[in-house]
Design a protein around this nucleic acid. Structure first.
Lengths: 117, 117
DNA sequence: TCCTTTATCAAGTAAATACTTAAATAAAAA
DNA sequence: TTTTTATTTAAGTATTTACTTGATAAAGGA
């Protein structure tokens, strides 16, 4: 999974842009510019980073650039976190299995000792 | 969702630490230090950031600090990306519904015109 | 053609980040 | 108590980042 996605998401302004795009079909750059206090150039730079991270799609329409969210990148992020959780829980399950096996053995040994006494 | 999680995950070294922790039950800080080229102090600083983002748990054991991953934060991340996807797809579904309704209306109008002719 | 709209690129800057080495803390062992 | 082990904190620095203003590009309309 490319570094870029995580660094792109690290900035709160960029996450705001994505959340804005998630709720609507499409937005020309100018409408995105309008929603933020910072200069249009600053937002343009953020959009470039989002583009490079493949978090958004752009379509040229006359002078305008129409932005849309790319949910593929979201899926990637989701799978990364999921895989982390699963590796961890699989580890826990393995530990549990070992513990259970050990308990069984101990119980068995205890029984055998009691029988021989 | 706190900013901290995303910024914490933006650094590749910190993601490596998390991936290391995901595969094992627990690690004392020193074992984490050993796996990386950078100084133990640098890793210690990364661990602090992971702690503050609630991505890891720490347990004191004598002089050692035992680190474990906290999968709750992973779940949060997963839900954020999921909610983004769902908002987007819901939007698409709504658009589709509107399109279908319009097609139906057009077909109906067409039929009526044909009948009156 | 010239002007306007829409958007990006470029250069400069202040603040944040990831690293370094040196010093500090705190528990265990000698 | 002194020393060793494990880890963090502190201070300094080079690099990166997010912003600014000014210049540029590309399409549309007068």
């Amino acid at each position: 999974m490319p570094n870029d996605i995580f660094s792109a998401l690290a900035d709160p302004t960029r996450r705001n842009i994505l959340e804005m795009l998630a709720g609507n079909d499409e937005f020309p750059a100018s409408e995105i510019y309008d929603k933020f206090q910072v200069s249009p150039q600053a937002i343009s730079q953020h959009l470039k980073i989002l583009r490079e991270a493949n978090l958004v799609h752009v379509e040229k329409r006359a002078q305008q650039r129409i932005y849309r969210i790319n949910t593929d990148a979201m899926v990637e992020l989701e799978q990364w976190s999921k895989s982390m959780r699963h590796r961890w829980t699989r580890r826990l399950d393995a530990m549990e299995a070992v513990l259970k096996a050990e308990m069984k053995k101990n119980l068995k040994n205890q029984n055998e000792e009691e029988q021989s006494n």
